[in-house]
């Protein structure tokens, strides 16, 4: 093996090396979540805007863009999971006998359930892909935009997808666990990258908790607003006119 290969292998084998991989892939995944949430907010803008956005995503760079993006995302996701599982296994081995009387001084609960919140998110991502990306439910397949048949009617798919309260409940639980994962994960990646110090400690903590909460609110609002009936019942016959009001007022769940 050449020198670079040896160095990469050493890096992967080392504890800090794997942690750095988790941190860097974590940044990519958080970046994706922010972009995904901002894009999702278009549901409040109305059917036309959300469908146009989805059309753009599927067609930029002649349709190659989304696949380049997806491959990158899958790679980051896979590396993040493989490295954290390897680290967790080593951690279990390192404390081979447990304390009979175990105590925690300051580690927050979110930090102690990272592997479980993470694995729940993994399960959720699989469900979410089968729910919306390659919808397996016949009611969510083949929906065309009523005004432009070349576009997929993502808006109706979302509204129909959240008519079942059990699905909404699963989304709420999974996104809450994702938020718990991020509460620790975001501030943690700054520490792993060596950016946490006396000067930055408080800011990093606030950014981590703040961003996690914003993502939680943004993601969770959609299934909740839909299940409360504020965006209609997903019947394509009477498409709702696009709401032109700003996003804040469209969050008003009393409208129907």
């Amino acid at each position: 093996m050449n020198a670079l290969g040896t160095a990469l292998l050493q890096f992967w084998k080392s504890s800090i090396g794997k942690k750095l991989i988790v941190a860097v892939t974590g940044i990519l995944l958080v970046g994706f979540l922010v972009a995904h949430m901002v894009g999702n907010m278009l549901v409040y803008q109305g059917q036309e805007d959300l469908n146009k956005y989805a059309y753009f995503l599927h067609h930029f760079l002649h349709g190659w863009g989304i696949w380049l993006f997806r491959l990158g995302l899958i790679g980051a996701f896979a590396l993040h999971i493989v490295a954290t599982i390897a680290l967790t296994r080593q951690n279990k081995e390192a404390r081979n006998t447990r304390y009979a009387h175990e105590e925690t001084v300051q580690a927050p609960r979110s930090s102690r359930i990272m592997i479980w919140s993470g694995l729940t998110v993994l399960g959720f991502v699989i469900f979410h892909i089968l729910h919306f990306t390659i919808p397996v439910h016949p009611d969510l397949q083949g929906l065309k935009d009523p005004n432009d048949a070349k576009m997929v009617d993502v808006y109706t798919m979302v509204v129909r997808g959240f008519q079942n309260p059990l699905v909404v409940l699963f989304y709420i639980v999974a996104i809450s666990l994702l938020c718990s994962h991020l509460m620790h994960g975001i501030s943690s990646l700054f520490q792993t990258l060596g950016l946490r110090s006396e000067k930055t400690r408080l800011l990093i903590k606030r950014v981590g908790v703040g961003l996690a909460l914003v993502l939680w609110l943004g993601f969770i609002s959609i299934p909740v607003v839909v299940v409360m009936g504020a965006l209609g019942d997903g019947s394509q016959e009477k498409p709702k006119p696009a709401m032109s009001a700003p996003a804040s007022s469209s969050l008003d769940v009393t409208k129907s």
């Binding site: 390192a94 001084v105 930090s111």
Partner: peptide, 15 residues
């Protein structure tokens, strides 16, 4: 050496 000794990995919990 730390890794070779079988210590675990820091998960930034600051215990």
């Amino acid at each position: 050496q730390m890794d070779a000794e079988g210590f675990g990995n820091c998960t930034n919990q600051y215990e």
